[in-house]
Amino acid sequence: MEKENVILEVSHLGKNFGTHQVLKDIDFKVQTGDVISIIGASGSGKSTMLRCINLMEEPSGGSIRYHGTDITDSKVDVPAYRAKVGMVFQNFNLFENMTVLKNCMIGQQKVAKVSRDEAGKKALFYLKKVGMEQYINARPKQLSGGQKQRVAIARALAMEPEILLFDEPTSALDPQMVGEVLNVMHALAKEGMTMLVVTHEMAFARDVSTEVLYMSDGVILEQGAPEEIFGNPKKTETKEFLSRFRNC
């Protein structure tokens, strides 16, 4: 009955690097407004899974349906699809040759073909949202990690994506900067942004997400509401993984 709301439907997704099978038979759905946290140990395939979703990695098998269209099909216009699916990286990946403002404008101008004025306005709107509007003239190398990541979020938002992918957005940050980025993400979630977040921030996964996926060894071992996963995990492996984060 909620079929209209489904943005992404991942089924039987697999990924091999050579003979090494990183993802095995991944299945899940993303609906409008979902905030899905993907947790699990390093090397469990979380990031690879996320990168397959916007085709930064080419899936080896299975399908990823975006509003019913399988985007792994060779006829799909990949850049046009990526413009609808924003991504925030662990290492920010801001364009080093542009100012903060230009970083948030270039995609709108060149990809979405929005006018310069319009792009500037929208860039500023989203930079304000992440609290970086004072830094429009700065270049990425002049910013701290937390500031860079907030600009990266604004850059992704300026494309007005339907869904935003976060690949360990706070993992490269000093502890005191993690908070400013998580606050921005929390605010976005509250506004109803659809988000897929690979994270090691258990508090965020528990308090902000609508659903949690626990991945281990290339499969989704357990998935459910955060209260379930954190309050009453069914699998011993999930329990053991979470026990290491108990005191946070």
Binding site: P79, N93, N97, A112
Partner: peptide, 30 residues
């Protein structure tokens, strides 16, 4: 030029040509 620059450009929907023109070549030129 760091591969992350290319990924950042692709993630907002740039084609290879656009990525080159606006992101990679200005940095490569320097």
């Amino acid at each position: 030029v760091d591969i992350g620059q290319t990924e950042g450009a692709k993630a907002i929907g740039m084609t290879h040509f656009q990525t080159m023109c606006y992101v990679i070549l200005p940095q490569a030129f320097r």
